[in-house]
Design a protein around this nucleic acid. Structure first.
Lengths: 356, 356
DNA sequence: TTGAAAGCGGTACCAT
DNA sequence: ATGGTACCGCTTTCAA
């Protein structure tokens, strides 16, 4: 009465072994594809496995091997086209290498990120790819590496953490576009980012915890200073964390008497919102306002006018990070790589000389 | 010489138990948060755990409990804004409910989807959310449910598979916009989808394996017929699987002598490409061509003219699917839900009367 | 080449 | 309330 064949619980190696008339160890060898077995036995086991519809239990396998075949990815927000494209790069490489990906959104919140890392570590991921919300707050990342599992930082590095890092050349990109804007006669140039500070105002780049953005702002300020533009810190606006926030900030900015003649948007979501506010306010781009946006989102070429953007190799960012991780997982013990992917300014028609 | 304290391998329940001077069972009770223990012992164990930096091994836990705390998600392409937004809905609900998400891209390929399901099942996910590439080819899905793990279908249902399903009201949406177009005098209306057929041509809705799209085309053809428009099958174009493909198809379409006066784009990626081709060809929207796109992508409101779209509750699609799954996981044994979320046509300015 | 048995790190049942 | 111990399903010595 206990040998019901349609018992719901899955068939195991032992079941197959019994049916094939061999030992558990032998069955495991053919089912797991390791060790050596005679052809005759292999066939018998294979047949039995098929008959019993044997499905291996990766969890049990992971228990003994210590490898879960899984990599954990923590990004700010998968909904953001930047991350979803990078994610595509990661998953493509992972699948190719036989790994599976666990995705967790941090919502750019440091605490959520910590919880995510803890969860991932508990699930015994083989490695991690993280886009840290705050570069200053990385004890949890350090602990992750201390647990022996390789970590790759995506889009945002850390000076104090010596691990593989893949970022874009944000600083030069920012310098480049700032230089162009200044050459065109702009001096009231605003930089707008989603990153926020404690008092929602910008004072110094050190306030900015997101490395990629900090580097851009540093580049922006540096070129401004070189051009004799002082005190541009006050033109840096933070806290554009949602379209609503952005809308409010941009509206206030453009309605002020000393309004900017150019805006640099730190990502395409912000750039889009700037575009919308201009519409509402009846401001013409580029005659009344020049606009440059980071991230070459697909729609930027189709607006009127099309938007000048900084093209970042987003897919390759993810792809490269995953490749680095897979190499580590395969035993690469060389020192940490810090890879900087080049960016490119795509000139379109949203930039013109400063209004008189 | 074997009691090196900085041994790399993680500390286990047994280690903690030893240090706290209690049995493994007792230590496990406090560490696992089950059973009953005296406060004194609880403290001792907690202290020992902290001292040893104990990190639970979820894999081992899953082994015995049979629950992995993981749900598997298979989508066509995470890079597509549709899926990344739905994914956001899924991950939000999953996190809230204490589940972690494994993401696999199928690339809309049935074989890849099968492999994905197999992998996920082997990893012992507790449940699955799948956006099936082909509704006709679902043996692997059936097998998944047979393994006892709940499955929820996302955006695409299946008549023959009796499982929880969350889709948008695609048919009515298509009927609605077709009706509007016809009322405006259009009769040469093209429908363009990424779905492909064996010979890359459309004959009958039965050729279309993606349920959501099939339902739209059925609605489109139905209304056309009711309005006395026959043979509209030849205005349905398939195979717009990449922007390049789309570009070629749309260009050919718009250059033909009998070119359409209106195009319905099956997703925002296609809609964007139609927009670009019109630019290139010097065709004015909506004077020369009316355009309606499925998916209210963020940029559609900012083009010139802004695009009339079918707004789908994409986030809620994912959210609802995840909620359904979590309920099943919590023991809901009621019959399969088939949830149809309402769509809404957002009228903007890309639609006008048919050119004379 | 094959088998027996000891884990992997927890959980859970049964005593005490 | 606590301890002893048999698993979970698979891998991996070690012998035979």
């Amino acid at each position: 009465m206990d040998q019901s064949p349609s018992r719901s619980s899955a068939t195991t190696v032992a079941d197959v072994a019994r049916k094939a008339g061999v030992s558990k160890a032998t069955a495991a060898r053919v089912l797991g594809g390791y060790g050596t077995v005679s052809d005759r036995v292999r066939d018998a086991v294979t047949v039995a496995a098929r008959a019993l519809n044997y499905q291996p239990n990766e969890l049990a396998r992971s228990m003994t091997t210590g490898r879960s075949g899984t990599i954990g990815v923590v990004v700010g927000d998968i909904e953001n086209p930047f991350f979803s494209l990078a994610m595509r790069g990661i998953t493509d490489v992972a699948r190719e290498a036989g790994f599976t990906v666990i995705l967790i959104n941090s919502g750019e919140d440091a605490d959520a990120e910590k919880a995510a890392i803890r969860t991932l570590l508990a699930k015994r991921v083989d490695g991690l790819i993280v886009s840290p919300a705050k570069e200053s707050d990385i004890d949890h990342l350090r602990e992750a590496t201390r647990s022996g599992r390789p970590l790759v930082l995506l889009d945002r590095g850390s000076e104090t953490l010596d691990v593989d890092t893949v970022i874009a050349d944000d600083r030069h990109a920012a310098e480049d576009i700032t230089r162009r804007l200044i050459a065109l006669g702009h001096s009231r140039i605003a930089y707008l980012t989603a990153c926020d500070t404690a008092d929602h105002r910008f004072h110094t780049p050190a306030d900015i915890n997101t490395g990629s953005v900090r580097r851009r702002i540093e580049g922006f300020l540096c070129i401004c200073r070189k051009a004799g533009l002082e005190g541009m810190e006050e033109w840096v606006h933070v806290g554009a964390i949602t379209p609503d926030h952005t809308h409010r900030i941009v509206t206030a900015m453009l309605k002020s008497p000393q309004r900017p003649t150019a805006i640099i948007a730190s990502d395409s979501v912000i750039g889009l919102e700037v575009f919308k506010v201009c519409r509402e306010l009846g401001l013409a781009i580029p005659d009344d306002l020049s606009l440059v946006s980071f991230h070459d989102a697909d729609w930027t070429s189709v607006t009127t006018p099309p938007v000048t953007v900084v093209r970042q190799p987003v897919y390759r960012l993810g792809e490269t990070a995953a490749k680095l991780l897979v190499e580590r997982l395969n035993g690469d013990g060389t020192e940490a790589n810090r890879i900087v992917l080049q960016t490119e300014v795509i000139e379109r028609a949203s930039v013109a000389g400063a209004p008189a």
